[in-house]
Structure formats: structure tokens, C-alpha cells
């Protein structure tokens, strides 16, 4: 099935969880945050959150910036 991660289409297995997606993307889980279909998913809920076809996932971190 297909999901969109940070705007990019990505083919993933069925029954993949958000926590597994983070591992698959090789992201450092600390100090990132995830939004699933425009709602924040708390870190503790990542392992229990199953992804569905056409889900839109935003994964953010922090960068240097002022205004």
C-alpha cells in the first residue's frame, strides 16, 4: 500500500506501525515528532498506530532558525 511521508509517496507493507516506519526510515526517535493525517501522534502511541493506505505522515525535527 502507499502512504505519503513528508509529501513523498512510499510503498510500505500492510500492518506497518508508525514505530516500525521510524525504524525503517532509520530516524533517530528522540527529538522528532510525527503527525498522521494532520494530528500529532504521541510517541507512546507509535507502536500501536497502524498505517493505512493513503495516510499522510509528517515527520519533523528541529533546525537552526530565528524568525
Amino acid at each position: 500500500m502507499r502512504v505519503y511521508v513528508n509529501g513523498e509517496p512510499r510503498e510500505i507493507d500492510h500492518s506497518l506501525t508508525l514505530a516500525e516506519l521510524v525504524t525503517e526510515l532509520d530516524l533517530p526517535p528522540a527529538r522528532i515528532a510525527i503527525e498522521l493525517n494532520r494530528a500529532v501522534v504521541r510517541r507512546n502511541d507509535w507502536p500501536a498506530t497502524l498505517l493505512n493506505d493513503e495516510d499522510r505522515i509528517e515527520i519533523v525535527h528541529f533546525v537552526g532558525g530565528g524568525s
Binding site: L25, R31, I59, F62, V63, G65, G66
Partner: peptide, 30 residues
Amino acid sequence: VTVAVRRVPLDRSSESFLDHLDPALQILPN
């Protein structure tokens, strides 16, 4: 200090920018 929020790049392993800040600083996300 204030920091910005952006999409994580997916094409490379990204280190955390926050690791470059003095841990004593209060972080103000913008």
C-alpha cells in the same frame, strides 16, 4: 534560544541539530 521546525530529510541519516546546543539552554521552538 529559538529553533525552527522542519520536515526530517528522508534521504540521509540526520543528526539532531539540538545536539549542537548547550543543554543548559531553554529551547523556544518557533
